[in-house]
Design a protein around this nucleic acid. Sequence first.
DNA 1: TTCAGATGTTGATGCAGGTTATGGCGCCGG
DNA 2: CCGGCGCCATAACCTGCATCAACATCTGAA
Lengths: 247, 247
Amino acid sequence: MSPASEIHVLSALVRKLESIARLSDAERRAIESLPAKPRLLQPGQDIVRDGDRPSQCCLILDGWACRYKLLGAGKRQIFSFHIAGDVPDLQTLHLHVMDHSICTLTEATVAFIPHDSLRDLITRFPGLAEIFWRDTLVDAAIFRAWIVCMGRRSAYEHIAHLFCELYLKLRAVGLADGYRCPLPITQIDLGDALGLTNVHVNRVLQEMRRQGLITLRDHTLAIESWDELSRISEFDPTYLRLEKQAA
Amino acid sequence: MSPASEIHVLSALVRKLESIARLSDAERRAIESLPAKPRLLQPGQDIVRDGDRPSQCCLILDGWACRYKLLGAGKRQIFSFHIAGDVPDLQTLHLHVMDHSICTLTEATVAFIPHDSLRDLITRFPGLAEIFWRDTLVDAAIFRAWIVCMGRRSAYEHIAHLFCELYLKLRAVGLADGYRCPLPITQIDLGDALGLTNVHVNRVLQEMRRQGLITLRDHTLAIESWDELSRISEFDPTYLRLEKQAA
DNA sequence: TTCAGATGTTGATGCAGGTTATGGCGCCGG
DNA sequence: CCGGCGCCATAACCTGCATCAACATCTGAA
Protein backbone atom coordinates (compact mmCIF):
# COMPACT_ATOMS: atom_id res chain seq x y z
CA MET A 1 0.00 0.00 0.00
CA SER A 2 1.40 3.38 -0.94
CA PRO A 3 0.93 6.16 1.61
CA ALA A 4 -1.14 8.12 -0.89
CA SER A 5 -3.70 5.39 -1.33
CA GLU A 6 -3.80 4.72 2.41
CA ILE A 7 -4.84 8.29 2.98
CA HIS A 8 -7.59 7.81 0.47
CA VAL A 9 -8.67 4.55 2.13
CA LEU A 10 -8.94 6.08 5.57
CA SER A 11 -10.79 9.16 4.43
CA ALA A 12 -13.90 6.95 4.46
CA LEU A 13 -13.43 6.52 8.20
CA VAL A 14 -12.79 10.24 8.67
CA ARG A 15 -15.96 11.10 6.78
CA LYS A 16 -18.00 8.66 8.87
CA LEU A 17 -16.64 9.94 12.19
CA GLU A 18 -17.26 13.50 11.09
CA SER A 19 -20.88 12.58 10.45
CA ILE A 20 -21.35 11.97 14.18
CA ALA A 21 -18.64 14.16 15.81
CA ARG A 22 -16.02 16.80 15.12
CA LEU A 23 -12.37 16.01 14.54
CA SER A 24 -9.34 18.21 15.06
CA ASP A 25 -6.74 18.41 12.29
CA ALA A 26 -4.31 16.40 14.38
CA GLU A 27 -6.89 13.71 14.97
CA ARG A 28 -7.73 13.59 11.28
CA ARG A 29 -4.08 13.21 10.35
CA ALA A 30 -3.56 10.53 12.97
CA ILE A 31 -6.46 8.51 11.60
CA GLU A 32 -5.23 8.90 8.05
CA SER A 33 -1.86 7.48 8.99
CA LEU A 34 -3.29 4.25 10.39
CA PRO A 35 -2.09 1.14 8.60
CA ALA A 36 -4.93 -0.39 6.61
CA LYS A 37 -4.88 -3.31 4.20
CA PRO A 38 -7.73 -3.11 1.68
CA ARG A 39 -9.20 -6.27 0.17
CA LEU A 40 -11.90 -6.85 -2.41
CA LEU A 41 -14.51 -9.36 -1.27
CA GLN A 42 -17.26 -11.20 -3.12
CA PRO A 43 -20.90 -10.88 -2.04
CA GLY A 44 -21.93 -13.20 0.78
CA GLN A 45 -18.41 -13.65 2.08
CA ASP A 46 -17.80 -13.76 5.82
CA ILE A 47 -15.45 -11.09 7.18
CA VAL A 48 -15.47 -12.27 10.79
CA ARG A 49 -17.22 -15.29 12.25
CA ASP A 50 -19.18 -16.00 15.39
CA GLY A 51 -16.64 -17.29 17.92
CA ASP A 52 -13.59 -15.67 16.32
CA ARG A 53 -11.06 -13.70 18.39
CA PRO A 54 -9.98 -11.11 15.86
CA SER A 55 -6.78 -9.07 16.27
CA GLN A 56 -7.89 -6.41 13.80
CA CYS A 57 -10.98 -4.40 12.92
CA CYS A 58 -12.55 -4.12 9.51
CA LEU A 59 -13.39 -0.82 7.88
CA ILE A 60 -15.90 -0.89 5.05
CA LEU A 61 -14.67 1.16 2.11
CA ASP A 62 -17.21 0.26 -0.50
CA GLY A 63 -20.26 -1.97 -0.79
CA TRP A 64 -22.55 -3.21 1.95
CA ALA A 65 -21.98 -5.59 4.86
CA CYS A 66 -24.11 -6.75 7.75
CA ARG A 67 -23.82 -8.23 11.21
CA TYR A 68 -25.85 -11.39 11.60
CA LYS A 69 -26.33 -14.48 13.69
CA LEU A 70 -27.30 -17.95 12.51
CA LEU A 71 -29.69 -20.05 14.58
CA GLY A 72 -30.70 -23.65 14.45
CA ALA A 73 -33.14 -24.64 11.69
CA GLY A 74 -31.39 -22.33 9.24
CA LYS A 75 -32.80 -19.13 10.68
CA ARG A 76 -30.77 -15.94 10.35
CA GLN A 77 -31.13 -12.60 12.07
CA ILE A 78 -29.40 -9.50 10.76
CA PHE A 79 -28.64 -6.80 13.38
CA SER A 80 -27.30 -3.96 11.28
CA PHE A 81 -26.35 -2.92 7.80
CA HIS A 82 -22.97 -1.32 7.18
CA ILE A 83 -21.69 1.00 4.51
CA ALA A 84 -18.54 2.93 3.66
CA GLY A 85 -16.85 4.32 6.75
CA ASP A 86 -18.36 1.86 9.21
CA VAL A 87 -16.23 -0.32 11.46
CA PRO A 88 -18.79 -2.97 12.37
CA ASP A 89 -16.50 -4.93 14.67
CA LEU A 90 -15.11 -2.00 16.62
CA GLN A 91 -16.38 -3.66 19.79
CA THR A 92 -13.76 -6.40 19.41
CA LEU A 93 -11.29 -3.91 20.91
CA HIS A 94 -12.88 -4.71 24.26
CA LEU A 95 -15.06 -7.79 23.69
CA HIS A 96 -12.58 -10.30 22.46
CA VAL A 97 -14.79 -13.17 21.32
CA MET A 98 -17.29 -12.44 18.54
CA ASP A 99 -20.88 -13.25 19.49
CA HIS A 100 -22.08 -12.91 15.90
CA SER A 101 -20.72 -12.87 12.36
CA ILE A 102 -20.17 -10.17 9.78
CA CYS A 103 -20.47 -10.75 6.06
CA THR A 104 -20.64 -8.80 2.82
CA LEU A 105 -24.01 -8.39 1.12
CA THR A 106 -22.56 -7.04 -2.11
CA GLU A 107 -19.14 -7.03 -3.64
CA ALA A 108 -17.25 -4.92 -1.14
CA THR A 109 -13.87 -3.40 -0.39
CA VAL A 110 -12.80 -3.79 3.20
CA ALA A 111 -9.67 -2.57 4.96
CA PHE A 112 -8.23 -4.25 8.02
CA ILE A 113 -6.71 -2.19 10.82
CA PRO A 114 -4.74 -3.98 13.56
CA HIS A 115 -6.11 -3.65 17.11
CA ASP A 116 -2.64 -2.57 18.24
CA SER A 117 -2.69 0.43 15.92
CA LEU A 118 -6.14 1.45 17.09
CA ARG A 119 -5.19 1.07 20.75
CA ASP A 120 -2.09 3.12 20.16
CA LEU A 121 -4.14 5.76 18.36
CA ILE A 122 -6.70 6.18 21.13
CA THR A 123 -4.00 6.24 23.78
CA ARG A 124 -2.32 9.12 22.02
CA PHE A 125 -5.63 10.84 21.27
CA PRO A 126 -8.10 10.40 24.12
CA GLY A 127 -10.53 12.55 22.17
CA LEU A 128 -10.64 9.83 19.53
CA ALA A 129 -11.28 7.19 22.18
CA GLU A 130 -14.32 9.21 23.11
CA ILE A 131 -15.48 9.42 19.51
CA PHE A 132 -15.05 5.70 18.94
CA TRP A 133 -16.91 5.01 22.17
CA ARG A 134 -19.59 7.38 20.96
CA ASP A 135 -19.80 5.50 17.69
CA THR A 136 -20.48 2.23 19.51
CA LEU A 137 -23.11 4.06 21.58
CA VAL A 138 -24.87 5.24 18.43
CA ASP A 139 -24.76 1.63 17.32
CA ALA A 140 -26.52 0.64 20.52
CA ALA A 141 -29.11 3.38 20.00
CA ILE A 142 -29.86 1.93 16.59
CA PHE A 143 -30.29 -1.51 18.16
CA ARG A 144 -32.83 -0.01 20.53
CA ALA A 145 -34.69 1.54 17.62
CA TRP A 146 -34.78 -1.87 15.94
CA ILE A 147 -36.10 -3.46 19.13
CA VAL A 148 -38.96 -0.96 19.18
CA CYS A 149 -39.74 -1.74 15.56
CA MET A 150 -39.68 -5.49 16.09
CA GLY A 151 -41.70 -5.40 19.27
CA ARG A 152 -44.29 -2.75 18.70
CA ARG A 153 -44.64 -1.91 15.04
CA SER A 154 -46.36 -3.64 12.14
CA ALA A 155 -44.32 -4.97 9.24
CA TYR A 156 -45.41 -1.98 7.19
CA GLU A 157 -44.29 0.55 9.80
CA HIS A 158 -41.09 -1.39 10.42
CA ILE A 159 -40.01 -1.33 6.80
CA ALA A 160 -40.88 2.36 6.53
CA HIS A 161 -38.72 3.03 9.60
CA LEU A 162 -35.80 1.07 8.22
CA PHE A 163 -35.93 2.95 4.92
CA CYS A 164 -35.87 6.30 6.73
CA GLU A 165 -32.89 5.17 8.79
CA LEU A 166 -30.92 3.81 5.85
CA TYR A 167 -31.54 6.89 3.74
CA LEU A 168 -30.25 9.25 6.44
CA LYS A 169 -27.22 7.08 7.22
CA LEU A 170 -26.29 6.95 3.56
CA ARG A 171 -26.84 10.65 3.05
CA ALA A 172 -24.68 11.46 6.08
CA VAL A 173 -21.64 9.98 4.35
CA GLY A 174 -22.48 11.38 0.94
CA LEU A 175 -23.91 8.21 -0.60
CA ALA A 176 -27.46 9.44 -1.07
CA ASP A 177 -29.38 12.59 -1.86
CA GLY A 178 -32.71 13.82 -3.19
CA TYR A 179 -34.58 11.04 -1.38
CA ARG A 180 -32.91 8.41 -3.52
CA CYS A 181 -30.38 5.91 -2.29
CA PRO A 182 -28.81 2.62 -3.27
CA LEU A 183 -30.38 -0.48 -1.74
CA PRO A 184 -28.27 -3.29 -3.15
CA ILE A 185 -29.70 -6.09 -1.03
CA THR A 186 -32.27 -8.80 -1.58
CA GLN A 187 -35.72 -9.10 -0.06
CA ILE A 188 -34.37 -12.12 1.80
CA ASP A 189 -31.76 -9.91 3.48
CA LEU A 190 -34.46 -7.37 4.31
CA GLY A 191 -36.61 -10.11 5.81
CA ASP A 192 -33.74 -11.40 7.92
CA ALA A 193 -33.19 -7.90 9.26
CA LEU A 194 -36.86 -7.24 9.92
CA GLY A 195 -37.71 -10.64 11.39
CA LEU A 196 -40.07 -11.36 8.48
CA THR A 197 -40.14 -13.80 5.60
CA ASN A 198 -39.10 -12.63 2.17
CA VAL A 199 -42.64 -13.39 0.99
CA HIS A 200 -44.17 -10.97 3.43
CA VAL A 201 -41.52 -8.34 2.73
CA ASN A 202 -42.47 -8.60 -0.91
CA ARG A 203 -46.17 -8.08 -0.19
CA VAL A 204 -45.50 -5.06 2.01
CA LEU A 205 -43.23 -3.53 -0.61
CA GLN A 206 -45.97 -4.00 -3.21
CA GLU A 207 -48.38 -2.22 -0.89
CA MET A 208 -45.95 0.65 -0.31
CA ARG A 209 -45.53 1.05 -4.06
CA ARG A 210 -49.30 1.00 -4.53
CA GLN A 211 -49.60 3.77 -1.94
CA GLY A 212 -47.06 5.80 -3.86
CA LEU A 213 -44.70 5.89 -0.88
CA ILE A 214 -41.64 4.49 -2.60
CA THR A 215 -40.31 3.19 -5.83
CA LEU A 216 -37.75 0.43 -5.66
CA ARG A 217 -36.05 -0.77 -8.83
CA ASP A 218 -32.59 -1.72 -9.98
CA HIS A 219 -31.33 -1.78 -6.42
CA THR A 220 -32.30 1.83 -5.93
CA LEU A 221 -34.81 3.10 -3.41
CA ALA A 222 -36.63 6.35 -4.09
CA ILE A 223 -38.66 7.76 -1.26
CA GLU A 224 -41.61 9.45 -2.95
CA SER A 225 -43.04 10.89 0.23
CA TRP A 226 -40.61 11.37 3.09
CA ASP A 227 -43.28 12.98 5.25
CA GLU A 228 -45.67 10.07 4.87
CA LEU A 229 -42.96 7.48 5.36
CA SER A 230 -41.62 9.07 8.54
CA ARG A 231 -45.11 9.81 9.89
CA ILE A 232 -46.28 6.24 9.40
CA SER A 233 -43.23 4.84 11.18
CA GLU A 234 -43.06 7.57 13.84
CA PHE A 235 -39.51 8.09 12.71
CA ASP A 236 -37.46 10.45 14.89
CA PRO A 237 -33.87 10.81 13.64
CA THR A 238 -32.47 11.91 17.01
CA TYR A 239 -31.11 8.45 17.79
CA LEU A 240 -28.76 8.53 14.78
CA ARG A 241 -26.94 11.56 16.27
CA LEU A 242 -26.07 12.94 12.87
CA GLU A 243 -24.32 16.28 12.93
CA LYS A 244 -26.16 17.37 9.78
CA GLN A 245 -29.79 16.84 10.76
CA ALA A 246 -32.65 15.33 8.79
CA ALA A 247 -34.48 17.15 6.04
CA MET B 1 -23.78 11.55 53.12
CA SER B 2 -21.12 10.20 55.40
CA PRO B 3 -18.06 8.73 53.68
CA ALA B 4 -18.78 5.35 55.26
CA SER B 5 -22.22 5.08 53.72
CA GLU B 6 -20.98 6.33 50.37
CA ILE B 7 -18.48 3.52 50.30
CA HIS B 8 -21.31 1.14 50.90
CA VAL B 9 -23.40 2.76 48.17
CA LEU B 10 -20.66 2.50 45.57
CA SER B 11 -19.73 -1.07 46.39
CA ALA B 12 -22.77 -2.04 44.27
CA LEU B 13 -21.03 -0.48 41.28
CA VAL B 14 -17.74 -2.14 42.15
CA ARG B 15 -19.43 -5.54 42.37
CA LYS B 16 -21.12 -5.04 39.03
CA LEU B 17 -17.93 -3.95 37.25
CA GLU B 18 -16.08 -6.87 38.77
CA SER B 19 -18.68 -9.19 37.30
CA ILE B 20 -17.53 -8.22 33.79
CA ALA B 21 -13.89 -7.10 34.32
CA ARG B 22 -11.07 -6.90 36.85
CA LEU B 23 -10.33 -3.84 38.93
CA SER B 24 -7.07 -2.78 40.52
CA ASP B 25 -7.11 -1.68 44.16
CA ALA B 26 -6.52 1.92 43.12
CA GLU B 27 -9.41 1.78 40.67
CA ARG B 28 -11.68 0.28 43.31
CA ARG B 29 -10.82 3.01 45.78
CA ALA B 30 -11.30 5.70 43.15
CA ILE B 31 -14.78 4.40 42.37
CA GLU B 32 -15.68 4.17 46.03
CA SER B 33 -14.80 7.81 46.54
CA LEU B 34 -17.16 9.05 43.84
CA PRO B 35 -19.84 11.40 45.12
CA ALA B 36 -23.23 9.72 45.01
CA LYS B 37 -26.58 10.92 46.29
CA PRO B 38 -28.94 8.02 47.05
CA ARG B 39 -32.70 8.46 46.77
CA LEU B 40 -35.60 6.13 47.44
CA LEU B 41 -38.07 5.99 44.57
CA GLN B 42 -41.58 4.58 44.32
CA PRO B 43 -42.44 1.92 41.71
CA GLY B 44 -43.22 3.27 38.26
CA GLN B 45 -41.39 6.51 38.80
CA ASP B 46 -39.35 8.01 35.94
CA ILE B 47 -35.64 8.48 36.64
CA VAL B 48 -34.77 10.11 33.32
CA ARG B 49 -37.09 11.00 30.48
CA ASP B 50 -36.96 10.78 26.72
CA GLY B 51 -35.57 14.11 25.52
CA ASP B 52 -33.78 15.01 28.76
CA ARG B 53 -30.17 16.24 28.79
CA PRO B 54 -28.98 14.83 32.10
CA SER B 55 -25.83 16.09 33.83
CA GLN B 56 -25.54 12.99 36.01
CA CYS B 57 -25.82 9.23 35.75
CA CYS B 58 -28.00 7.01 37.90
CA LEU B 59 -26.68 3.95 39.68
CA ILE B 60 -29.25 1.39 40.77
CA LEU B 61 -28.59 0.33 44.37
CA ASP B 62 -31.68 -1.72 45.07
CA GLY B 63 -34.85 -2.73 43.24
CA TRP B 64 -35.45 -2.98 39.52
CA ALA B 65 -35.56 -0.37 36.78
CA CYS B 66 -35.94 -0.50 33.02
CA ARG B 67 -35.24 1.50 29.91
CA TYR B 68 -38.31 2.00 27.77
CA LYS B 69 -39.83 4.05 25.01
CA LEU B 70 -43.43 5.12 24.63
CA LEU B 71 -45.06 5.13 21.22
CA GLY B 72 -48.28 6.55 19.90
CA ALA B 73 -51.44 4.59 20.74
CA GLY B 74 -50.13 3.89 24.23
CA LYS B 75 -47.65 1.23 23.17
CA ARG B 76 -44.53 0.73 25.26
CA GLN B 77 -41.32 -1.12 24.47
CA ILE B 78 -38.87 -2.05 27.21
CA PHE B 79 -35.21 -2.44 26.11
CA SER B 80 -33.53 -3.71 29.23
CA PHE B 81 -34.04 -4.53 32.87
CA HIS B 82 -31.65 -3.10 35.44
CA ILE B 83 -30.65 -4.24 38.89
CA ALA B 84 -28.23 -3.28 41.64
CA GLY B 85 -24.92 -2.07 40.25
CA ASP B 86 -26.23 -1.08 36.83
CA VAL B 87 -25.81 2.43 35.43
CA PRO B 88 -28.49 2.35 32.74
CA ASP B 89 -27.80 5.85 31.46
CA LEU B 90 -24.03 5.61 31.25
CA GLN B 91 -24.28 6.49 27.56
CA THR B 92 -25.37 10.03 28.48
CA LEU B 93 -21.67 10.75 29.08
CA HIS B 94 -21.33 10.88 25.29
CA LEU B 95 -24.88 10.99 23.92
CA HIS B 96 -26.28 14.05 25.52
CA VAL B 97 -29.98 13.86 24.64
CA MET B 98 -31.90 10.83 25.92
CA ASP B 99 -33.64 8.88 23.16
CA HIS B 100 -35.67 6.85 25.66
CA SER B 101 -36.77 6.95 29.29
CA ILE B 102 -35.76 5.05 32.41
CA CYS B 103 -38.17 4.23 35.21
CA THR B 104 -38.37 2.07 38.31
CA LEU B 105 -40.39 -1.13 38.18
CA THR B 106 -40.32 -1.70 41.94
CA GLU B 107 -39.56 0.49 44.89
CA ALA B 108 -35.90 1.26 44.28
CA THR B 109 -32.90 3.06 45.69
CA VAL B 110 -30.96 5.01 43.12
CA ALA B 111 -27.79 7.06 43.51
CA PHE B 112 -26.91 9.95 41.24
CA ILE B 113 -23.32 10.54 40.16
CA PRO B 114 -22.43 13.81 38.38
CA HIS B 115 -21.05 13.49 34.87
CA ASP B 116 -18.16 15.71 35.90
CA SER B 117 -17.05 13.27 38.56
CA LEU B 118 -17.24 10.35 36.15
CA ARG B 119 -15.33 12.23 33.48
CA ASP B 120 -12.69 13.15 36.00
CA LEU B 121 -12.50 9.55 37.17
CA ILE B 122 -11.96 8.08 33.72
CA THR B 123 -9.42 10.75 32.85
CA ARG B 124 -7.37 9.80 35.89
CA PHE B 125 -7.91 6.07 35.32
CA PRO B 126 -7.95 5.22 31.61
CA GLY B 127 -8.38 1.58 32.60
CA LEU B 128 -11.75 2.50 34.04
CA ALA B 129 -12.72 4.30 30.85
CA GLU B 130 -12.09 1.04 29.09
CA ILE B 131 -14.22 -0.88 31.58
CA PHE B 132 -17.10 1.56 31.32
CA TRP B 133 -16.85 1.42 27.55
CA ARG B 134 -16.84 -2.35 27.83
CA ASP B 135 -19.97 -2.20 29.98
CA THR B 136 -21.83 -0.26 27.29
CA LEU B 137 -20.60 -2.82 24.76
CA VAL B 138 -22.04 -5.66 26.82
CA ASP B 139 -25.26 -3.69 26.87
CA ALA B 140 -25.20 -3.57 23.09
CA ALA B 141 -24.55 -7.31 22.94
CA ILE B 142 -27.66 -7.86 25.06
CA PHE B 143 -29.65 -5.68 22.65
CA ARG B 144 -28.46 -7.91 19.82
CA ALA B 145 -29.56 -11.00 21.72
CA TRP B 146 -32.99 -9.41 22.21
CA ILE B 147 -33.21 -8.62 18.50
CA VAL B 148 -32.55 -12.28 17.70
CA CYS B 149 -35.26 -13.32 20.13
CA MET B 150 -37.79 -10.87 18.76
CA GLY B 151 -37.05 -11.62 15.14
CA ARG B 152 -36.50 -15.33 15.02
CA ARG B 153 -37.82 -17.05 18.14
CA SER B 154 -41.30 -18.04 19.25
CA ALA B 155 -42.82 -16.43 22.32
CA TYR B 156 -42.06 -19.60 24.27
CA GLU B 157 -38.38 -19.61 23.30
CA HIS B 158 -38.12 -15.89 23.84
CA ILE B 159 -39.39 -16.02 27.41
CA ALA B 160 -37.13 -18.97 28.15
CA HIS B 161 -34.16 -16.99 26.83
CA LEU B 162 -35.03 -13.95 28.92
CA PHE B 163 -35.29 -16.03 32.08
CA CYS B 164 -31.87 -17.56 31.47
CA GLU B 165 -30.39 -14.11 30.91
CA LEU B 166 -31.98 -12.56 33.98
CA TYR B 167 -30.98 -15.43 36.23
CA LEU B 168 -27.32 -15.20 35.20
CA LYS B 169 -27.22 -11.43 35.47
CA LEU B 170 -28.71 -11.56 38.95
CA ARG B 171 -26.42 -14.35 40.05
CA ALA B 172 -23.37 -12.47 38.79
CA VAL B 173 -23.98 -9.73 41.34
CA GLY B 174 -24.99 -12.08 44.13
CA LEU B 175 -28.75 -11.60 43.90
CA ALA B 176 -29.62 -15.16 42.86
CA ASP B 177 -28.51 -18.70 43.38
CA GLY B 178 -29.71 -22.29 43.20
CA TYR B 179 -31.73 -21.54 40.06
CA ARG B 180 -34.01 -19.23 41.97
CA CYS B 181 -34.17 -15.50 41.53
CA PRO B 182 -36.43 -12.57 42.29
CA LEU B 183 -38.69 -11.47 39.45
CA PRO B 184 -40.55 -8.53 40.94
CA ILE B 185 -42.23 -7.37 37.75
CA THR B 186 -45.68 -7.82 36.27
CA GLN B 187 -46.68 -9.81 33.23
CA ILE B 188 -47.44 -6.48 31.57
CA ASP B 189 -43.81 -5.44 32.02
CA LEU B 190 -42.68 -8.78 30.65
CA GLY B 191 -44.95 -8.35 27.65
CA ASP B 192 -43.62 -4.88 26.96
CA ALA B 193 -40.08 -6.24 27.02
CA LEU B 194 -40.87 -9.25 24.84
CA GLY B 195 -43.05 -7.44 22.32
CA LEU B 196 -46.08 -9.53 23.37
CA THR B 197 -49.39 -8.84 25.07
CA ASN B 198 -49.77 -9.63 28.74
CA VAL B 199 -52.46 -12.15 27.77
CA HIS B 200 -50.08 -14.12 25.65
CA VAL B 201 -47.31 -13.91 28.22
CA ASN B 202 -49.75 -15.45 30.66
CA ARG B 203 -50.62 -18.28 28.26
CA VAL B 204 -46.95 -19.08 27.69
CA LEU B 205 -46.12 -18.98 31.39
CA GLN B 206 -48.97 -21.41 32.09
CA GLU B 207 -47.56 -23.70 29.44
CA MET B 208 -44.05 -23.50 30.89
CA ARG B 209 -45.44 -24.38 34.32
CA ARG B 210 -47.38 -27.30 32.82
CA GLN B 211 -44.13 -28.55 31.26
CA GLY B 212 -42.44 -28.34 34.65
CA LEU B 213 -39.85 -25.89 33.35
CA ILE B 214 -40.39 -23.18 35.91
CA THR B 215 -42.37 -22.19 38.93
CA LEU B 216 -43.22 -18.56 39.35
CA ARG B 217 -44.90 -17.38 42.52
CA ASP B 218 -44.64 -14.50 44.95
CA HIS B 219 -42.38 -12.60 42.56
CA THR B 220 -39.86 -15.40 42.61
CA LEU B 221 -38.79 -17.40 39.60
CA ALA B 222 -37.52 -20.94 40.11
CA ILE B 223 -35.95 -22.59 37.10
CA GLU B 224 -36.81 -26.27 37.51
CA SER B 225 -34.80 -27.40 34.52
CA TRP B 226 -31.97 -25.15 33.47
CA ASP B 227 -30.87 -27.57 30.77
CA GLU B 228 -34.29 -27.69 29.16
CA LEU B 229 -34.78 -23.94 29.43
CA SER B 230 -31.44 -23.10 27.85
CA ARG B 231 -31.75 -25.83 25.22
CA ILE B 232 -35.18 -24.66 24.11
CA SER B 233 -34.02 -21.07 23.77
CA GLU B 234 -30.58 -21.93 22.33
CA PHE B 235 -29.18 -19.86 25.17
CA ASP B 236 -25.45 -19.20 24.94
CA PRO B 237 -24.19 -17.04 27.83
CA THR B 238 -21.11 -15.80 25.99
CA TYR B 239 -22.71 -12.48 25.13
CA LEU B 240 -23.09 -11.52 28.79
CA ARG B 241 -19.29 -11.62 29.22
CA LEU B 242 -19.53 -12.67 32.82
CA GLU B 243 -16.23 -13.40 34.50
CA LYS B 244 -17.79 -16.21 36.51
CA GLN B 245 -19.31 -18.38 33.81
CA ALA B 246 -22.67 -20.15 33.67
CA ALA B 247 -23.43 -23.36 35.50
C1' DT C 1 -26.84 -17.44 -26.72
C1' DT C 2 -28.28 -20.38 -23.67
C1' DC C 3 -29.12 -22.26 -19.43
C1' DA C 4 -29.18 -22.75 -14.31
C1' DG C 5 -29.59 -20.87 -10.05
C1' DA C 6 -30.98 -16.87 -7.47
C1' DT C 7 -34.47 -13.60 -6.73
C1' DG C 8 -39.05 -11.68 -7.10
C1' DT C 9 -44.19 -12.36 -7.40
C1' DT C 10 -48.57 -14.32 -6.39
C1' DG C 11 -52.00 -17.50 -4.35
C1' DA C 12 -54.03 -20.76 -0.89
C1' DT C 13 -54.09 -22.17 3.75
C1' DG C 14 -52.95 -22.44 8.75
C1' DC C 15 -51.44 -20.84 13.12
C1' DA C 16 -49.15 -17.88 16.62
C1' DG C 17 -50.25 -14.35 18.85
C1' DG C 18 -53.48 -10.09 19.14
C1' DT C 19 -57.96 -8.32 20.84
C1' DT C 20 -61.69 -8.03 23.79
C1' DA C 21 -64.13 -9.50 27.62
C1' DT C 22 -64.97 -11.42 32.08
C1' DG C 23 -64.07 -13.16 36.72
C1' DG C 24 -61.18 -14.00 40.85
C1' DC C 25 -57.98 -12.73 44.28
C1' DG C 26 -55.20 -9.84 47.31
C1' DC C 27 -54.36 -5.29 48.95
C1' DC C 28 -55.30 -0.79 50.51
C1' DG C 29 -57.81 3.24 51.91
C1' DG C 30 -61.99 5.10 53.77
C1' DC D 1 -66.40 -3.73 56.32
C1' DC D 2 -66.79 -2.39 51.89
C1' DG D 3 -65.43 -0.73 47.41
C1' DG D 4 -61.95 0.03 44.11
C1' DC D 5 -57.81 -1.11 41.87
C1' DG D 6 -53.96 -3.79 40.13
C1' DC D 7 -52.63 -8.15 38.74
C1' DC D 8 -53.41 -12.87 37.25
C1' DA D 9 -56.10 -16.13 34.74
C1' DT D 10 -59.05 -17.98 31.01
C1' DA D 11 -62.10 -18.02 27.01
C1' DA D 12 -63.81 -16.75 22.34
C1' DC D 13 -62.80 -14.81 18.37
C1' DC D 14 -59.87 -12.37 14.86
C1' DT D 15 -55.77 -11.19 11.93
C1' DG D 16 -51.00 -10.53 10.46
C1' DC D 17 -47.68 -13.05 9.11
C1' DA D 18 -45.66 -17.85 8.20
C1' DT D 19 -45.74 -21.71 5.30
C1' DC D 20 -45.93 -24.12 1.11
C1' DA D 21 -46.20 -24.09 -3.63
C1' DA D 22 -45.97 -22.61 -8.35
C1' DC D 23 -44.26 -19.71 -11.62
C1' DA D 24 -41.93 -15.52 -13.59
C1' DT D 25 -37.91 -12.88 -14.18
C1' DC D 26 -33.30 -11.61 -13.67
C1' DT D 27 -28.28 -12.49 -13.72
C1' DG D 28 -24.14 -14.35 -14.65
C1' DA D 29 -21.27 -18.08 -16.34
C1' DA D 30 -20.05 -21.07 -20.07
